[in-house]
Amino acid sequence: MLILGIETATQQVSVAIGGHEGVLGMFEVSRGRRHAETLIPAVEFLCAQADVQIDEFGAIAVDIGPGLFTGMRVGLAAGKAMAQALRIPMIGISSLDLLAFPLRHADRTIAAVIDARKGELFYAFYKPVPGGVQRVTEPVVGRAADLAADLMARGQNVVCVGDGALRYREEIAGGAACDFAEQFLAHPSAAPLVQLAHARALREEWVNPWEIQPLYLRAPDAQINWSTRESAR
């Protein structure tokens, strides 16, 4: 089965086609930041170059975050629309899982860290297990100082990966024993996305397009208090 992977959780746009033999093709660009203008042409280009017709896909995999709203909504909306039109299921995978997965041979704890903007980070810890990585903490949103404190409390030698880790490298490293993964691993990529999704597809662990939800890490919702303006509404 062929799977189309769509990854837009950070400023990067990444799309890949995967099958039982692995990743067949991938397109990735992190300098542009107009996800809406890049994503569909990237899918078209990739399909044309890999000689894949769009109706050959058996599932669509998307990164469900946590990530930046401006990118996430483009990737999720495009993935849902294509899956509904093609009548195929979807597979959602967390951005932090995708960051940690390429470091599965690291043989130590991995901190996956995404830049959430406004001085905040999305992060979670992982440990390598045979065939992949296992998340050992709930994903949280916090500041660099919070992550630095978590690292110190763990007292382990940790490898940090992600654009958030690199942006706040000095604050995070202060006092804790940690290394930082390379910049080319700093954005979640559609290559591990289709690889992980393929394993799930074999187990038929998928969802309907209308059921897939982004993973938001934010305060509980509240009504806007419009009564503060007497004549509003």
Binding site: L68, F69, T70, R73, R117, K118, Y216, R218, A219, D221, A222, Q223, I224, W226
Partner: peptide
């Protein structure tokens, strides 16, 4: 808009 999450969805900080 009627909820804080709808405002958050505008992603003003990212803009």
């Amino acid at each position: 808009l009627s909820t804080q999450h709808e405002v958050a969805d505008l992603a003003l900080a990212e803009l």
